[in-house]
Design a protein around this nucleic acid. Sequence first.
DNA 1: GTCTGGAGCCTTGTATACGAACTTGCACGG
DNA 2: CCGTGCAAGTTCGTATACAAGGCTCCAGAC
Lengths: 228, 228
Amino acid sequence: MTNQDNAPARDGEASGAVETAYRFIRTAIISGDLASGETLQESRLAERIGVSRTPVREALSRLASEGLVVLERYRRGQVASFSMADVAEVFRLRGKLEGHGARRACRRISADDIARLEAVEDEMEAVFAELGWHRHLSRFDELNNEFHAIIARAADSPRLEKILASSLELPASIFNHYIEPVDERTRRTHRQHREIIAALKARNPDWAEAAMSAHLFSILNDPAPDPE
Amino acid sequence: MTNQDNAPARDGEASGAVETAYRFIRTAIISGDLASGETLQESRLAERIGVSRTPVREALSRLASEGLVVLERYRRGQVASFSMADVAEVFRLRGKLEGHGARRACRRISADDIARLEAVEDEMEAVFAELGWHRHLSRFDELNNEFHAIIARAADSPRLEKILASSLELPASIFNHYIEPVDERTRRTHRQHREIIAALKARNPDWAEAAMSAHLFSILNDPAPDPE
DNA sequence: GTCTGGAGCCTTGTATACGAACTTGCACGG
DNA sequence: CCGTGCAAGTTCGTATACAAGGCTCCAGAC
């Protein structure tokens, strides 16, 4: 399908076909549009996206290296499946790595970024207060990702950022499947985010690391047995 | 059951031009055959390896996602360059992650694997005692990598293993460029490896984690980083 | 009825063709 | 002499063609 007429659509990103395919498939997996275990046929995807198989193959290869897709030689690819053990592993590693990131961010984060963190957290709480979880799950996830991304960025460690973004991301649907988004957990998340912000403001590396690690480790033990 | 008997014992490698290209280029970079900053021409590599450009492209793409190659749209790729800051970052992250891995390995590693660790360390020391660093650098690096790989494997965390293998590996030439392999450091490495083995034998997670982290963090403060 | 085997279709893997974008180098003007 | 701009050449990005290997499903035997 020759589609070279369209003006530089939304210039935003590289106008490459491989990037288009990558974003398309990745978004579909993260959002749950493509479910775990679903088969991925190159020609089918190519037609759907409007490019040829070549960039689709490259996109699938990247996604496979990120762990979101499983490829086997001469067999159709599939969307990766995640067990509870996978989720636990991801949060253990994120706890370690983001804790390290928060420690470093302590000494580096700008006042502007701290303000952004507070704004993001304000909005998360507002969204939750107004509509509760179920109506705004995707917006909530988006804000949560931004919260963590701001801190990871402030850690000034490109490899840390890359690992978090590319090797330790799970489809939102998986997360919400294994870990019920109960109100109590959400309230705990808010308390923890506020504590992380406080630690960063105080420029206390030990506190920041511990608070961030605790935040991530705690997620696995939900719904909270001991409400403080 | 498919009865594909007498398959070549060494499965895996012969299959695939992309794997061939990937191994070829990666090995060349790690070994220093392809130096930092050197340009990578797809057609040239394809001819050299004996495949077409397609698998070479895919191999380069994977290497780029691992950080060993830098690709820019419509520009020739290059072997990535690493600053002292990059080396430091890698060892900080490895310290954290491998420390975590050693902690987990404590409770999981088999007696066989501990024996293998000791055998590997024995050989490292023998190689060093007989010939010193300069004659056996590559064998030494190989053994060192195996030492760390055994522990990472024993941690039973596939993502941890993958991250260590694909996102936190540096060309040996880079390492040996920034961090002079002096005898004193080598002796310290031996002491630290022995301590790590002892901690694993004792099944003491705190000790194992601390010993492994210390080992990796210590590398950066050897004799004196040579700025360049 | 169930198992086995194989033929044909389907999907993936690799090579090649073609168009788009950068680079190089020279000409020309300041 | 040096900088600018155009044009040819080179390299990359994408599409398409062809080859190699699985999968399906039906026929035949036990």
